[in-house]
């Protein structure tokens, strides 16, 4: 309830700010909130399938990127030898803005779902990899000693200590990544797409249909909030001890 009330208050404040700026600018490029929300409900039949396509892309990319990054990230964090080998690659690859590879991916994978999912997946992969590595490296030695003294194998240590100890940091990283992932999704869908919310927004912009454009922007914002909340829900379900 507290969380919902907080959301409601934030929405009211943002809509009020939006209304104020729109009233001051008086430009068709920034319609009033009422006009935009009316357009949003009117455009729902077109927005829902577009949002569905975007949702599938972003969920597949985030899940894939996370699941592929977790095992190597945790292993690198727990092994000095692996870290010595992997660190130079990470230092070189991590700072590169992955979005520059969009043209390469489009050439290699075509215009369908694959290049968008792979691009977002690569971004999530590197951020999860680095977070998991750092979290695994910083596990309290007492927890590790506790299970090792019981004769735990490497797999048992990973299961009983390494994975649960690093989950909170991984979830924090994922929630922070939602914004980046949606920004890349927008870019990928708007540059090379025939479906999805990014494509919908850019199409409306191209036709100077600002009302529809804002309906798309609202839908994309909602998509971000839904994914963020779904992650928060999963976090609360999986990390009950906090």
């Amino acid at each position: 309830m507290k969380r919902l009330a907080g959301y409601a208050l934030a929405v009211v404040a943002l809509v009020a700010l939006w209304w104020l700026v729109a009233s001051l600018l008086q430009t068709p490029a920034l319609p009033s909130p009422l006009t935009a929300f009316n357009a949003f409900f009117a455009e729902l039949p077109a927005l829902v399938p577009a949002a569905g396509v975007s949702l599938v892309r972003i969920v597949a990319a985030m899940l894939g990127g996370m699941l592929l990054a977790l095992p190597p990230g945790l292993a690198i964090g727990r092994s000095k030898r692996l870290d010595t080998i992997a660190a130079p690659f990470l230092y070189l690859l991590y700072p590169i803005p992955k979005v520059v590879f969009l043209p390469v991916l489009l050439v290699l994978l075509g215009l369908g779902n694959a290049p968008k999912i792979v691009l977002i997946g690569v971004v999530v992969f590197f951020q999860t990899l680095v977070t998991a590595r750092d979290a695994a490296r910083n596990i309290d030695a007492q927890y590790l000693m506790s299970v090792r003294s019981l004769g735990a194998s490497r797999m048992q240590t990973a299961r009983h200590v390494v994975v649960p100890a690093t989950l909170p940091e991984v979830f924090t990283a994922l929630r922070i990544n939602v914004g980046t992932a949606i920004a890349i999704l927008f870019l990928a869908e708007s540059i090379a797409g025939t479906s999805g919310l990014g494509y919908y927004i850019v199409q409306a912009w191209g036709m100077i249909d600002y009302h529809a454009m804002f309906a798309g922007i609202i839908a994309m914002a909602l998509l971000g909030v839904i994914i963020y909340e779904a992650l928060a829900l999963a976090e609360r379900a999986l990390i009950r001890w906090r």
């Binding site: 007492q142 927890y143 000693m145 506790s146 299970v147 003294s149 019981l150 004769g151 735990a152 048992q156 009983h160 200590v161 649960p164 100890a165 989950l167 990390i239 001890w241």
Partner: peptide, 28 residues
């Protein structure tokens, strides 16, 4: 397996319940 090692902070894992912590040696 028959040695119990009690650490300064008791070595309890915060993500396991009291029962799961007590059973950990047997599970392992």
């Amino acid at each position: 397996k028959n040695t119990a090692y009690m650490l300064q902070n008791y070595g309890l894992l915060p993500w396991k319940t009291v029962l799961e912590n007590a059973a950990l040696g047997l599970i392992i």
